[in-house]
Computed example of a mutant assay.
Amino acid sequence: MNLPIETPALLFSATSLILLAYTNRFLTIAQIVRGLKKTYDQEHTKDILIQIKNLNLRITLIRYMQLFGVMCLFLSVFAMLLLFIDQQIIGIYLFGASILCLMVSLALSFWEISISVKALRVHLSDLMEDKKQ
C-alpha cells in the first residue's frame, strides 16, 4: 500500500472552512444566549429557560464538532509527517482516523442543524397558527 503525502493535505482546506463555519455558529449562539440571559433576568419566564437549554445543547455539540474537526486536522498533519518519514502503514491508519474524525464532526453538525431547524419551527408555529385563523 502506498499513500501519497498530498492525499492527507486535501483535508486542509475543507477542514479549515468547516472550523470557520463552526466558530461562526458558536459566536452567533453565544450572542443569542447572552441576550436571552438578560431577558430572563428581567422576566423569569419558562419559555426563555427552555430556549437557553436548547442553545446550551447546541453549544455543547458545536464544541464537540470543533474538537473532532481539530482532531481531523491534527491527524492529517501527523499522517503527512509519518508518510514523509516513510512510515506508510501508520500514516495510512492515521489518515483513516482523521477521515473518521471528520465524519463524526459532520454528523454532529447535522444533529446541531436539525435541533436548530426544530427550534425555528417551534418559534414560527405561533405565526402559522395566526395565519390559519
Rank of each mutant, 00 (worst) to 15 (best):
I99V: 09
M103Q: 02
K53M: 10
R63H: 15
K132H: 10
S76M: 02
I50L: 08
R121P: 02
Q88C: 09
K38A: 15
S116Y: 00
R58L: 08
K131Q: 07
F26C: 15
M103D: 11
L19N: 05
L11H: 08
Q31F: 09
Q66G: 14
K118D: 13
V77N: 04
L19K: 05
F84C: 08
A107N: 09
L55E: 02
D41C: 07
N56F: 09
H44G: 06
L61A: 00
S105G: 07
K131F: 15
L102F: 01
L10M: 08
H44E: 11
L3S: 09
A119W: 05
H44W: 04
T60W: 13
M80L: 10
H123W: 13
D86E: 11
Y64M: 15
R25V: 03
T7D: 08
S114Q: 13
L3F: 10
F68V: 01
D86A: 14
L61H: 01
L100P: 01
S98P: 03
T45F: 06
L81C: 04
M71G: 08
K53R: 12
L27Y: 03
K131G: 02
D86I: 10
L73I: 04
L67P: 14
I5M: 08
A97C: 13
L81A: 05
I59V: 15
V77H: 03
A14F: 00
T15S: 00
L27E: 03
I115N: 05
R121G: 01
T23C: 10
V70S: 09
A107W: 07
A79V: 06
M80N: 03
S105R: 04
F26P: 00
L20Y: 00
Q31E: 15
S109L: 04
T45K: 12
N56Q: 15
C101F: 01
D126H: 13
G91M: 01
T7M: 12
L100H: 03
T7N: 08
F74N: 00
F95Q: 06
S125L: 07
D41L: 12
A14I: 11
I50C: 05
G91T: 09
S13E: 05
K131S: 11
T45P: 02
I99K: 02
A9Q: 01
L20K: 06
F26N: 02
S105K: 03
V117H: 04
F78Y: 12
L106D: 01
L27C: 06
I90F: 10
L120N: 11
F84D: 11
K46P: 04
L124V: 02
L55F: 06
L94E: 03
S125F: 10
F84M: 11
P8I: 10
S98Q: 10
N2V: 14
R63S: 14
S13R: 07
A79D: 01
S98E: 03
S114M: 11
E129P: 07
Q66T: 12
T15M: 02
F74S: 13
T23H: 08
F95C: 03
T39K: 14
I52C: 09
G35A: 03
S76C: 09
H44V: 13
I92F: 05
G35L: 12
I18E: 07
L120S: 03
